[in-house]
Design a protein around this nucleic acid. Structure first.
Lengths: 226, 226
DNA sequence: ACCTGAACACCGTTCAAGT
DNA sequence: ACCTGAACACCGTTCAAGT
């Protein structure tokens, strides 16, 4: 009765053959097709041709589901260990790869900002960054405090510059900040007025990202922990 | 008919006397009483003894409402201009004040992470930080790129360390990351295992916050923009 | 103008019941 | 064990209608 599985396997993608993997894969597909805000239990269940209650066997929560989608996307970020001739360049590279994934997927980028990620791919990313920081010469105790912030800044800068093609909400937010900065009075806010909204806000994304990494690494090199 | 306003003013807080101010004030109250996730259009309307549709005269959106609550809280952060004998100390102070507000209010802290804030109090904060960076000796073009990140890191570190008493969600997130870091194998993740979850995760909040500010300022001082 | 009732189109999550 | 129908308790937002 069990061995042959005589009824055609996989006629439909995943009816009673539900699995966590299949669910997460479907969630990633739904997210690519319709955006993260449409990755809801109900819609996902519909896509899998079942009811929402069925998903709770494999996924605790909506937020766990979103976290799983995020980690799935991070699969490509950490390459093989690499010989690594120039560790600082390698650091820039891996963080740029991380940013690229998030810029392409604004929904998960926001997820990464709100819920501390902790999937296997994210752990691998932490490990890699720690190794590169050591190779660059940052003392271990400082690296421990730095890695978090390095990833945070990368996440935020990606989320910020992923408005093009992203959720309409994010774009409106950026516009509102730009408008607010531009509309400021030179008397009450002389510095903002002097610098101007363009100066404060953008600059070409990747260059800015690289600069921040250098600032953090250089700063950490000469700032002992208290 | 208009001048006297003969019917007792303000018998009930705000029935037909709705106003944006009143709405935001009520929202702040609701947030303090029940947490940010309960600050919904429907609940707020109920607290104001009206229907949800009425709020849309004064507030575009739920997200605009949340942003308004956040900015309201930021009112106390930027003190008077101050004589400022030691600008670096003043910088630490204002960022610490910002962090303190957000640690005390985890809901708005998360709002600040997801939607770029742009209220008047936030603009005042940007202005103040720019002035202090100049006083510290950071060149203007670097300060323009730095201010964003300085506030971002403060926001994130506050959101991270505001789990006590915050939304149960956040606490679970931190726990999950801690567990993931602690449960890592020394072979696959030697650096994480060597440092340990405690080292990587916490350390006393304010000290860590101060350290980051110093790292960023020191790093910016010696890292020219590309 | 400002305010409202009522509706539309959704949510997450649980639970008793089925297989 | 795994899966499900149905329900519970919510959401944001709009719109025609009232004052």
């Amino acid at each position: 009765m069990v061995s042959g599985n005589p009824v055609s396997r996989r006629e439909r993608p995943a009816k009673p053959g539900l699995s966590r993997e299949g669910i997460v894969r479907a969630a990633v597909g739904l997210m690519r097709a319709e955006g993260m805000e449409r990755v809801t239990m109900r819609r996902l269940a519909q896509a899998l041709d079942t009811g929402p209650a069925s998903l709770y066997v494999y996924v605790r929560d909506t937020s766990e589901l979103h976290a799983a989608v995020l980690d799935e996307l991070l699969g490509d970020v950490v390459g093989s260990p690499q010989p690594c001739p120039d560790p600082r360049a390698a650091l820039h590279e891996v963080l740029q790869a991380y940013r690229t994934v998030l810029v392409a997927n604004p929904g998960p980028a926001r997820v990464a900002l709100v819920t501390r990620p902790h999937g296997p791919h994210y752990l691998a990313l932490i490990e890699r960054v720690l190794a590169l920081l050591a190779a660059v010469g940052v003392p271990d105790d400082r690296a421990a405090w730095l890695v978090d912030v390095l990833l945070l800044v990368a996440t935020a800068s990606a989320a910020e510059h992923s408005t093009r093609g992203g959720s309409p909400n994010a774009e409106a937010d950026d516009d509102a900040l730009a408008a607010a900065l531009a509309g400021v009075s030179a008397e009450s806010h002389p510095r903002i007025a002097a610098l101007g909204a363009e100066q404060l806000l953008s600059g070409p994304g990747p260059l800015r990202g690289r600069w921040f990494v250098d600032v953090l690494v250089n700063g950490a090199a000469e700032t002992p922990r208290p």
